[in-house]
Nucleic acid binder design. Structure first.
Length: 370
DNA sequence: ATTGCTCAAGGG
């Protein structure tokens, strides 16, 4: 299985030895956080609100007019986990998108351990090969090549891990990765999502809710893909990929080694589309979440999740209304205010002050005029 | 140039 490795082409003096060998195994995935230091924040802080008149003088160049979060954050698409984070707390997710996140070391360590466990599981099934890439086209090409190698495995009822999914949902393009797909003894296609936990305890209800939402969304997107609803045109429209842009040499080499004679990204997209729709892949029958303890790998619990498409779609629609700029972001309900205790943005968040608890107790007798 | 723009999930 191929894994993309970023290559610095921007700095001319580093052109010599920056290549990663394309057969390098990924032994350490520790991403250096130093790159986040150079994030330039497009200051959304100083928008002059003026007097409410529509600022729609069409030829004002800069986006002074109101824009959706998708535009403000310069997003062409969202990750599935963006929406599950949004399920946890919409405001926290919004803060994370606009401020470079400052994870505490403890939190980072838990995430890191989780990532390692997931990587170890993936390595049980196949080796990883690093393919140097320089463009987003290369990156998607590698993703497609991985899919092309996994689909036949799935078709012959094998087990695959880290399967990419993408598609348009409620007008917004979503990109994600399914942990694992396999068939049960009864021949049903089962999605298995692994969640590792720092403490050997069952997850709280709020955690389960979020995880259930995540796997339902995966099924929704995967099903749409095998049903031919996700076309190359839709993909290109949202991602602005250039199907004719030449692919990097390492990607082309990797494709050839995989037995795919493709010249362009467009070729690959067609191939993936055909493979997805002509392989007789079923929709996902069963959604399963497994919780295990990080340190001991002890099983903590297994959830079989009902699809409940209607509820899931209503939720997505509500979330997308935020992303499209149709409504303001919301914080958690009072009964979930405990989430704020571990939130990095609690001190700059205005939600708790303005919501429920106070406003109801602060107007005691104004209504009792009889 | 008026310039540009994404590896997803990782856990609570």
């Amino acid at each position: 299985m191929a894994e993309t490795g970023e290559e610095e082409t921007a700095s001319p003096e580093a052109s010599g030895f920056s290549d990663l060998s394309d057969s390098e195994f990924l032994e350490f995935l520790d991403l250096d956080d130093e790159s986040s230091a150079s994030v330039s924040k497009p200051g959304p802080s100083e928008l002059p609100e003026k007097d409410g008149k529509s600022v729609s003088l069409q030829n004002w160049k800069r986006g002074l007019d109101v824009s959706s979060p998708m535009e403000r954050f310069h997003l062409k698409y969202l990750y599935v986990t963006d929406l599950s984070t949004q399920n946890w707390c919409e405001l926290q997710m919004a803060f994370e998108k606009e401020l470079p996140d400052f994870l505490t070391p403890e939190k980072a360590a838990v995430l890191d351990t989780g990532a390692s466990i997931h990587l170890a599981r993936e390595l049980e099934l196949h080796d990883l090969v690093t393919v140097p890439i320089t463009t987003k086209e290369d990156n998607w090409a590698v993703k497609f090549l991985n899919m092309l190698s996994m689909i036949p495995t799935l078709q012959s009822e094998g087990c695959i891990r880290e399967f990419p999914v993408f598609g348009e949902v409620e007008g917004v393009f979503l990109v994600g990765v399914i942990d694992e797909l396999h068939y049960t003894a009864k021949g049903e296609l089962e999605l298995a999502e692994l969640k590792t936990r720092r403490r050997p305890m069952l997850p709280l209800e709020a955690q389960k809710k979020k995880d259930c939402f995540q796997v339902r969304l995966y099924k929704f997107i995967f099903d749409a893909m095998v049903q031919g609803k996700v076309t190359p045109e839709i993909l290109i429209h949202h991602t602005k990929l250039c199907p004719d842009k030449p692919l990097g040499p390492s990607v082309l080499r990797h494709a050839r080694q995989g037995g795919f004679s493709v010249k362009s990204l467009g070729d690959l997209m067609e191939l993936v589309f055909l493979s997805l729709t002509l392989s007789d892949l079923p929709v996902i029958d069963i959604l399963k979440i497994e919780y295990i303890h990080q340190e001991t790998a002890t099983a903590l619990g297994t959830e079989i999740v009902a699809f409940e498409e209607k509820e899931m779609r209503d939720k997505v629609q509500h979330y997308m209304a935020y992303w499209m700029g149709h409504r303001e972001p919301q914080g958690v309900d009072v009964e979930e205010a405990w989430k704020c205790r571990t939130c990095n943005y609690a001190d700059i968040c205005e939600w708790r002050k303005g919501s429920g608890v106070l406003s109801s107790t602060m107007e005691p007798q104004t209504k009792k005029a009889k």
